[in-house]
């Protein structure tokens, strides 16, 4: 077997992938002076998600992680590439077939304030997917709504209340209930705890872990907080300027990051321990993150990388398997 042909989408350690993303590209035209400028939001991303696992997707603002999440659930069409959900290519589906597939693929959003219609009662919000997908109506829908409300820790007696009557944490529970009501198998959570207070974050993280066990859910967990992502994820993918630069098991990445950018991220996050903090030396990056309209050639990180060599500005390093289940896109992986 050819070693070089292995990509994160065909990672042999992923025994039963639920989702496979192959060479997905998402470009946005920005108008520009001649209407030619293009934002390279997601550029040639491949990955696979194992049935029942949580894959964490981290990166800084503008790296394309949210766009990738939205493309995967087909909220936005991919510019090119394939997204296989249980071996069906979602990018090829239209109409009724896409709708049926979509029931199994749900999304949880960051801002429970903005993603819930303030004029609808909780009961209407949570039961809306049931009506839209013509799964249940009337008494049956009511029962289902009460059941999921109980499951996510909301008092089912609150069905007639409005979103503003709830706290941020409870609103996020409403968002989760709405995603859960169709019995999905796969959920994309885009910064689900970032807007919440610390004590509430733990409630939601624990709830998501419980739901995963209870319903055998598979998660793509997108966030910028590395500590949260690491806590909840079995594997982690790190994005920089539209590309995945490293993907692998959370523990292995924590112990020994392979890509310099991963190492920089790791070193940047403070730990709630004054002794460890006194010893921590963050690796500070030079310069600013380049524009995704005009990303640097070859390795996109080379303009800021502490160990970049000449080759890094000339030859793009492929995202290749460096060790079993570990991929990194770097000519000098593991050397920082």
């Amino acid at each position: 077997m050819q070693q070089s042909a292995v990509t994160p989408a065909t990672d042999p350690t992923i025994k039963s992938p639920l989702l496979r993303v192959e060479n997905v590209v998402k470009h946005f035209p920005t108008g520009g002076a001649f209407g030619r400028a293009v934002v390279h939001a997601v550029d040639d991303v491949s990955l696979a998600i194992q049935q029942g696992e949580t894959l964490g997707l981290v990166g800084e603002s503008g790296c394309g992680k949210s766009t990738l999440g939205r493309v995967i659930v087909q909220l936005q069409p991919a510019t090119s590439g394939h997204i296989y959900f249980k071996d069906t290519d979602l990018t090829k589906l239209r109409g009724e077939k896409l709708r049926r597939m979509r029931q199994q693929v749900q999304m949880i959003f960051q801002d429970p304030y903005a993603s819930l219609n303030p004029r609808m009662t909780v009961g209407d919000i949570v039961s809306e997917p049931l009506r839209n997908f013509r799964v249940a109506r009337g008494r049956k829908a009511e029962q289902k709504v009460q059941e999921v409300m109980r499951v996510v820790g909301l008092n089912p007696g609150f069905v007639n209340r409005y979103p503003h009557e709830f706290s941020g944490g409870q609103r996020q529970r409403i968002g989760i209930a709405r995603a859960l009501v169709l019995n999905p198998t796969f959920m994309v959570a885009d910064e689900p705890v970032s807007a919440l207070d610390v004590s509430i974050q733990a409630q939601i993280v624990n709830l998501m872990e419980d739901l995963q066990t209870q319903f055998n859910l598979t998660y793509l967990f997108i966030a910028h907080e590395l500590a949260v992502v690491r806590h909840i994820s079995d594997r982690i993918a790190v994005m920089y300027l539209g590309k995945i630069v490293e993907i692998g098991p959370s523990d292995a990445i924590r112990d020994r990051p392979l890509h310099p950018y991963t190492k920089v991220l790791e070193s940047s996050v403070p730990v709630p321990d004054p002794d460890l903090e006194a010893a921590r030396k963050p690796i500070l990056l030079k310069g600013e993150i380049p524009s995704p309209v005009n990303p640097p050639p070859a390795c996109r990180f080379h303009t800021r990388c502490p160990i970049a060599q000449k080759i890094c500005s000339e030859v793009e390093p492929p995202l290749e398997m460096k060790e079993s289940g570990r991929f990194a896109a770097c000519h000098f992986a593991g050397q920082l």
Binding site: V198, Q201, N206, A227, H231, P272
Partner: peptide, 14 residues
């Protein structure tokens, strides 16, 4: 209640 960067294993958050 907060996940830590130096966390080893999967302990449940308080």
């Amino acid at each position: 209640s907060m996940p830590r960067m130096d966390e080893v294993g999967k302990e449940r958050l308080v």
